[in-house]
Nucleic acid binder design. Structure first.
Lengths: 194, 194
DNA sequence: CACCGAATGGACCAGGCGGTCCAGCCGCCT
DNA sequence: AGGCGGCTGGACCGCCTGGTCCATTCGGTG
């Protein structure tokens, strides 16, 4: 698919994706045209189509991958070292901080919804993201000797998703905090028979 | 604001909103033009702008209100009669069924994200929706003699949101089921100390 | 150093879409 | 009955945006 990228070419491509992603984060997908991206990344129209021959959709797809990776990355180093009680607290705080900072915009979600109808290959990206996310949580729960790690992983993921969803819509992070803490309780204290 | 609507006018307006909402549900916001709506509702361009002088954004806003109302409506009669254990089960099943049927499209969410940047008045709509939704759940929890109804309401709402979010993204409703049941447990059995 | 393909610049195009406007119809109210 | 004001039809406009194309430069490799 990629026709031999020079080192320089690869750098340009990366610059485009990163710049465009930043633009999307602050403005929203619908508010950004190829020309905006062109301006923000100091590139020409031909470069955009040189690196993304299929046009806008292909570029958005690349951005989606970029953003999906960022979601997990932003939870490190906490996410990978879950196990002991303090690690959960640290992770919890990191998640809350990250999404409070993000404000009311959900780049990946917007991207997904926009691409999904016409672009089937976006679904695997988000599916994979959620899957490894859940898996990381499950591993953490297992290390914490939770009674049902799989279930805990799933419930924790749902708590984050739900809380963030409400935060996105209302601007209030209370739900996220409460949901997270509630889902976390059985993990932190495996003694609870429940 | 509304300049005297005839009975006929009101009917037309309603026809437009309902028809457009249906169209959005099956295709997604970005895939629907005013002309599509015009065709689907058998109206003319001038009617669209007669009833929604501010144009597309105003129409979308009306659709958002329509959809928000539908969210709660679709949970009736269960949502308003929550209390006894069977009522919770019925509600749970209704929610799962509704969102499984909805598929991977979230009209209200898409609408919100699209309007939010330029249209501040959309936020109150979804905020109000979430608020009364949570309130209904809290009332139900209270009637069920849950130990902390407020918290239960919030956690339940988050569970639904999170589960639906994951369902929307992956097409898998397992998370929704598990999250709901987990959040429901303390409500169904107030004896559990926590 | 010569060559070839990658990289870049930017003018240009076509179509879709939101929005405007005017002309004619219908129906309510006195 | 008559007229005023809401209601409807549909032609028309102009911008914006994604996408195309060709000419030029750059860079590495034989």
């Amino acid at each position: 698919m990629s026709t031999a990228l020079t080192r320089k070419g690869a750098a340009t491509r990366e610059r485009i994706v990163a710049g465009a992603a930043a633009l999307l984060r602050e403005r929203g997908v619908d508010e950004v045209s190829l020309d905006d991206i062109r301006a923000a990344t100091a590139t020409s129209k031909s470069q955009l189509f040189h690196y993304f021959p299929e046009g806008r959709s292909q570029l958005l797809l690349a951005i989606a991958e970029h953003e999906a990776a960022a979601v997990l990355q932003d939870q490190e180093p906490h996410l990978s070292t879950l196990g002991p009680p303090e690690s959960w607290a640290a992770w919890r705080d990191a998640v809350i901080a990250r999404y409070e900072a993000q404000g009311t915009r959900c780049p990946l979600g917007a991207l997904t919804r926009q691409l999904a109808p016409t672009n089937p290959e976006v679904r695997p990206i988000v599916t994979a993201l959620l899957d490894t996310w859940r898996e990381r949580l499950t591993e953490g729960a297992r290390r914490a000797k939770a009674t049902d790690p799989e279930k805990s992983g799933l419930v924790l993921l749902a708590a984050v998703q739900g809380g963030v969803g409400i935060l996105l819509a209302t601007g209030d992070s209370t739900a996220l905090r409460v949901a997270l803490d509630t889902a976390l309780a059985p993990v932190l204290d495996p003694e609870i028979v429940k």
